[in-house]
Design a protein around this nucleic acid. Structure first.
Lengths: 105, 105
DNA sequence: GCAATCGTTCCAAGAAAGTCGAACTGTAAT
DNA sequence: ATTACAGTTCGACTTTCTTGGAACGATTGC
């Protein structure tokens, strides 16, 4: 077999709704994570988690899910790990200036 | 007595936190209201309420409270009514570009 | 194959938020 | 004064979100 990794669902850009984006960003832990991603680019889940305070895996994974389903990040398999990427270019297209404002503030 | 109207508490600008602002904006009804205020300037509570779909007074008042406590609006007595104002200049100072991005999108 | 690792999903409990009727407060008009 | 009016607050209910342990699935290394 080749790569039969677990793909998680991601909303299309047109499906990304502003209220959901704002809600996902309204949690301090998730907001910090987005800022880390904006600064460091792509990270593995483990690296993401290492940035913040110690929190159970399941809790962290739930935050990733919220951000992913809102359309803020991509979460993709990479061997036995997973990489997390901010959908910056797409979000800049859909909501111009929003990410800049949020990450800068 | 002169004007002893009911003043409601408003956070100082420095006390306004980004997560609370984003949370307040993450509800479609509240987001719409902010957009109305951005477009029309100051409105009375009744005028605000008339913009959206019909909703009980108490529910609407609760949304106003959320927005006020987050620092997004001012709600001040005006005779027997109340006026609602977007704290735009202050917010632009505290979170440059945020309101523009949110209202435009 | 077997074990270890990485991370998600499942489930249950507690916390927070939304909704709305009813009661209440303050202002204006008569 | 009395009545009407504009909005907030209170209280109860429902819904959603958060949190974290345990189980599961997939991948790599031995």
């Amino acid at each position: 077999m080749t790569t039969t990794a677990r793909e998680l669902p991601h909303p299309e850009l047109v499906e990304v709704e502003l209220p959901a984006v704002l809600f996902a960003l309204s949690d301090p832990a998730r907001l910090d994570l987005i800022r880390e991603l904006a600064a460091h680019g792509t990270l593995t889940v483990a690296e993401c988690q290492a940035q913040g305070p110690d929190v159970p895996k399941s809790t962290f994974s739930h935050h990733l899910k919220t951000l992913r389903e809102a359309g803020l990040i991509r979460n993709e398999p990479a061997g036995r790990q997973r990489t997390v990427t901010l959908r910056r270019a797409e979000l800049d297209e859909r909501f111009p200036g929003l990410l800049d404002a949020v990450v800068t503030s």
